[in-house]
């Protein structure tokens, strides 16, 4: 569909973006690989030379490694499950005729605009604080003992905060998809006597498949690297140390660059496993 001239123009115009991203990917990656094979403690003797795979072995055999992988996957999976399920429900609800639809939509989108540091701080202090938090007041009102959310139910709390932030995104994408659903098809099914449940399973849900794929893809990208929410709320304590956070601690708190870099390589491998898995699905779904 094009001439040699436009093809070479296209290559030239694509080049800056590709080169920049390639540089952004490769330079730090190579440096991380380099550090991961060295004993490097900036505050305790500096660069002490090659140590082979020591850092890798130490990182993976540390008692925090597997729990952190597990934590990461639970948070990503939990948030995805909550946002997709609630997102579908909300999208179907918002698609119904009602008064003030525009305002409700604004209310529902709002959390997406809130920066993660703010939402983490607000949730942590004003809602989940066991003494002065709003939840504590509610619990006391019903005669229950206030929960120490961030220590007793730390994972649930973080999943909840992050889900609150991402629910608007899921809802909006799914709402757009619901609105594009062919209403004649639904009416035909209704005429055929299909109850809502079958219409949902056989018509609505398949129609939403592509939108759900997009939600899962984009959210996974962002969720794998959540940082502020944990940094502000638990600081990685109470079993909420994700792989990202563990590396962050090795690099910044223990100032062990070699060990942190080895962890970084593991994180990159994990991200790639998830990425390949996702790209397979998405690549297939985006063709349609």
């Amino acid at each position: 569909m094009a001439t040699k001239q436009s093809r070479s123009a296209a290559r030239i115009m694509l080049a800056p973006a590709v080169i920049l991203l390639l540089g952004w990917m490769l330079v730090p990656l190579v440096m991380t690989l380099w550090f991961s094979f060295r004993q490097y403690l900036p505050l305790r003797g500096g660069d002490q030379g090659f140590v082979g795979f020591d850092n890798y072995i130490r990182f993976i055999s540390s008692s925090s490694f597997w729990p952190s992988v597990q934590t990461t996957l639970i948070i990503v999976g939990g948030v995805l499950a909550i946002t997709v399920v609630l997102g579908v429900v909300l999208a179907l609800l918002l698609d119904q005729p009602m008064w003030g639809q525009g305002i409700v939509r604004i209310l529902v989108i709002a959390p997406f605009f809130v920066m993660p540091t703010v939402s983490a701080l607000v949730w942590k202090n004003m809602f989940m604080d066991p003494v002065n938090g709003l939840f504590a007041h509610v619990w006391k009102f019903f005669g229950a003992t206030p929960v120490e959310w961030l220590s007793q139910a730390s994972m649930q709390s973080i999943i909840m905060i992050v889900s609150w932030q991402w629910l608007p995104f899921a809802t909006l994408i799914l709402l757009t998809a619901v609105q594009s659903l062919d209403s004649e098809q639904l009416e035909a099914a209704e005429m055929d006597g299909a109850p809502f449940r079958s219409r949902f399973w056989y018509l609505i849900l398949p129609h939403l498949a592509r939108a759900i794929t997009i939600v899962v893809l984009i959210q996974t990208i962002f969720l794998l690297s959540i940082f502020a929410e944990i940094f502000v709320t638990t600081g990685g304590a109470f079993g909420t140390r994700t792989l990202s956070y563990l590396i962050f601690q090795r690099v910044l708190e223990s100032q062990n660059i070699g060990l942190g870099s080895a962890g970084g390589v593991y994180a990159i491998i994990l991200a790639n496993i998830v990425a390949i898995f996702l790209m397979r699905i998405v690549g297939k779904n985006l063709d349609a």
Binding site: M25, V27, P28, L29, M31, T32, F35, T220, I221, L224, S225, F227, L243, S244, Y245, I247, F248, V251, L252, I257, G260, S261, G263, G264, V265, A267, I268, L270, A271, N272, V274, A275
Partner: peptide, 10 residues
């Protein structure tokens, strides 16, 4: 998807 922490130090 490259984890930011992985490349923070570089």
């Amino acid at each position: 998807m490259l984890p930011a922490v992985g490349v923070l130090y570089p």
